[in-house]
Amino acid sequence: MITDDQPLLTARGITKMYGRHVGCTDVSFDLFAGEVLAVVGESGSGKSTLLSVLSTRLEPTAGTVCYRMRDGEMRDIYRLNEAERRLLMRTDWGFVHQDAREGLRMGISAGGNVGERLMAIGSRHYGEIRATALDWLGRVEIDLARVDDAPKTFSGGMRQRLQIARNLVTQPRLVYMDEPTGGLDVSVQARLLDLLRGLVADLGLAVVIVTHDLAVARLLSHRIMVMRAGRVIETGLTDQVLDDPREPYTQLLVSSVLQV
């Protein structure tokens, strides 16, 4: 998949205004299958606005986002009808929220949470749905004995791993992640990052991950985009940007990480 010469996602001139206030402005990039792109910056840099625009949650003021559908056709995601858009979001895409409560049904069992996407696309065999759910719980290192427990009884790290399993069960090609390790203890973060890195590589996932944490970007991403005040100010291979930042602002970001 990585050898495909067509991008999976193309963003061109993405601008989002909130009245006269700039959310993000003139963002363009290509994302290829299997590629992990980290969007980094401080809060207010426009990285979250960009993620919302890319994931059809927030229509841009200007610019286009195109996605290569499973049939190979590039489609403007804001020109899909609602049924196509919703189908895309629950099959070929995933979205991992920082707050797992936004991405899970807290009163539904872990198995039901993972199985929901399967049932949404027509699975009608309880035994198969459950077997698939158990397989995914195993892959995200959740004790299989917890399959019938609701995530409201889970720890923060478990909830996040369950959210990931719930997204990956339909084998999406693109997953958006919004600060997926935010708010977790350092040791829990490390385990989650390790798991994510393995899954992304095994499944050949393309990922757009928004984070303020450069260590997360370093560990997961191939490429990095640094945003400030709504603009992309530096972009490149992750190791190059983090080891040898050209922009003074990026240098500041990197050095403040080193100080921590």
């Binding site: 919703r86 039901g112 049932m119 949404a120």
Partner: peptide
């Protein structure tokens, strides 16, 4: 989109 109803039956 009625997958959610099946989630209830699954539960």
């Amino acid at each position: 989109e009625y997958g959610l109803m099946h989630v209830k039956l699954y539960e």
